[in-house]
């Protein structure tokens, strides 16, 4: 398994954000991480990237333990946060150079960044300060940063929000290409139609717990719905909870 999350539990002080969640993503597989707000998607991503530390459980990337070999693990990861905050006082190309330096991939910088800037139509803005970019352009920049090194595992937290249709198409193509190249991809999203089309497998979370996992057929069966049911129908059925059952949730910081 390229990414193996085993019994991940995360408490923020006394709030339980993720409860004994296990997810694995194989080489060349795209897994969608779905769940209502506060379900724990972002927390799982942050645990995998080492931004926050799991209270219990183990995270393995390419067989390496995050706890024991953090830097080696991070070298194999790429992460696009939900609302990226790039350095506003860097130019676009400086930002990419910084990303390349951080991941020690400077030798491929020149060829890689030119190509990515063109694909995401940021080439004309390469020498502009990030300060002057629109929200969608900043999102594209964060995505390009993630593709600046050859990551084994790609983590996307709501990657499609705020990007123009051409950018969305480009990103989807790149995700599919990455899968073809053997990358393991975990996508946290609320865009169910995209998840249905793009993902090989879906994990549904509710209140920090994994409540379902599998492809659409498995989920339809789990939700006791027919094969005409869409992922949206299945998701809404599975995540339906009584108000009294609703936990406090963990807001994204």
């Amino acid at each position: 398994m390229a990414l193996d999350i085993q019994n991940l539990t995360k408490y923020y002080k006394t709030t339980l954000a993720v409860d004994e969640v296990s997810i694995s993503v194989a080489d060349g597989e795209i897994v969608g991480l779905l769940g209502p707000n506060g379900a724990g998607k972002t927390t799982i991503m942050r645990c995998v990237t080492g931004i926050v530390q799991a209270t219990h459980g183990e995270i393995l990337v390419d067989g390496l333990s995050l706890r024991k070999r953090e830097q080696d693990v991070k070298r194999r990861l790429a992460f696009v946060p939900e609302v990226p905050n790039p350095y506003e006082m860097l130019t676009v190309v400086e930002h990419l150079r910084f990303a390349a330096m951080a991941y020690d991939t400077e030798p491929i910088f020149d060829s890689r960044h030119e190509e990515l800037l063109r694909r995401f139509e940021l080439h004309d803005r390469r020498n502009d300060l990030v300060l002057s970019l629109s929200k969608g352009m900043k999102q594209k920049l964060a995505i390009i940063c993630a593709f600046m090194h050859d990551a084994k595992v790609l983590l996307f937290d709501e990657p499609l929000i705020g990007i123009d249709p051409k950018g969305v198409r480009e990103l989807k193509d790149m995700i599919v290409e990455a899968r073809a190249n053997g990358c393991a991809i975990l996508i946290g999203t609320h865009m169910l139609d995209t998840a249905e089309r793009l993902c090989d497998r879906i994990v549904i979370l509710r209140q920090g717990r994994k409540i379902a996992e599998g492809d659409l057929d498995d989920l339809q069966e789990r939700a006791k719905m027919g094969e005409d049911a869409t992922l949206e129908d299945v998701f809404l059925t599975l995540t339906e909870v009584d108000t009294a059952d609703e936990g406090p949730g963990v807001p994204s910081a």
Partner: peptide, 16 residues
């Protein structure tokens, strides 16, 4: 830390 550090340095392999 700046929000940019959280998004771009924390997940990177730069030594803590």
């Amino acid at each position: 830390f700046s929000a940019s550090h959280i998004d771009f340095v924390f997940p990177s392999p730069v030594n803590r």
